[in-house]
């Protein structure tokens, strides 16, 4: 086994051992799907939007990936506080390998979480077109990687969890709400619409929608290119900041 594999495996083990985290992270998407899906469904249909669950489900899958991935990245802070991080930082391996293993592990967990929500949403009435499923997985993976790397970058700069609430309220929630996960971006006032164009998750959500059978807004190639480039940049920044950690 090598460094990257064992650190990847560590993230997985920690996730699957924490039953409360798995169950807890299913509750929120389920609530969104039921409350919003059944609540707004009729209005959406009346407005001529078609089946709201088919529109909403990719957004909620992206949401659960977003939260899980950010949280996985933020785990760096816990490892700093509980001391385990030191153990990896003094090891004779490149810190880029360490951060890569961690990030891949966090992204895998997020991807798995997205898969669970995908299945749940099918139970609730989501009927995706499965022809492009492999491409949907690619988009889910990019979202996972991007936000795990972002979480890692943020956590590398923080010393404790005190800033966490701030990050949730001023970064993660806006990223979620401005991504078009819950409503179409097309009807927005142009000022807000331009902001949504800077939101990486907008392209993730749009890509998931497009590959799962709904119409895309930006086009799949645009989604893939922009999200792909942003992911590479985030991985670079996350790794760099991680490599500079002092404890």
């Amino acid at each position: 086994m090598n460094t990257i594999t064992i650190l990847w495996l560590r993230q997985l083990k920690k996730y699957f051992r924490s039953k409360s985290r798995i169950i807890g992270s299913m509750g929120q998407p389920l609530l969104f799907l039921i409350a919003l899906g059944f609540g707004f469904g009729p209005i959406y249909q009346k407005a001529g939007g078609g089946n709201y669950i088919d529109f909403l489900a990719p957004g909620i899958i992206a949401m659960s990936i977003l939260f899980t991935a950010i949280f996985s990245g933020i785990e760096v802070i816990w490892d700093k506080q509980f001391g385990f991080l030191k153990e990896t930082l003094v090891a004779p391996v490149s810190r880029y390998e360490i951060v890569l293993g961690r990030t891949l592990g966090g992204a895998t967990v997020a991807l798995f979480q997205g898969a669970i929500v995908f299945l749940i949403s099918m139970l609730i009435g989501f009927s995706p077109n499965l022809v492009l499923l492999p491409f949907a997985i690619v988009f889910a993976l990019l979202i996972s990687l991007f936000f795990t790397a972002l979480g890692t970058a943020i956590a590398s700069m923080l010393d404790d969890m005190q800033g966490f609430q701030l990050i949730m309220n001023f970064l993660v929630m806006p990223v979620f709400f401005l991504s078009g996960a819950l409503f179409p971006l097309t009807g927005l006032p142009s000022a807000i619409y331009s902001i949504t164009l800077f939101d990486p998750l907008s392209y993730g959500v749009d890509g998931l929608r497009g590959t799962l059978g709904a119409v895309t807004q930006f086009g799949l190639l645009t989604d893939f290119t922009i999200l792909g480039v942003m992911t590479v940049i985030a991985l670079g920044i996350g790794s760099y900041l991680f490599s500079k950690i002092q404890v």
Partner: peptide, 16 residues
């Protein structure tokens, strides 16, 4: 790492 076993902590070190 408190969430790993004693053996897993050792093994992780050995691999690193």
């Amino acid at each position: 790492d408190d969430d790993l076993t004693a053996y897993e902590n050792m093994e992780l070190h050995a691999v690193l």
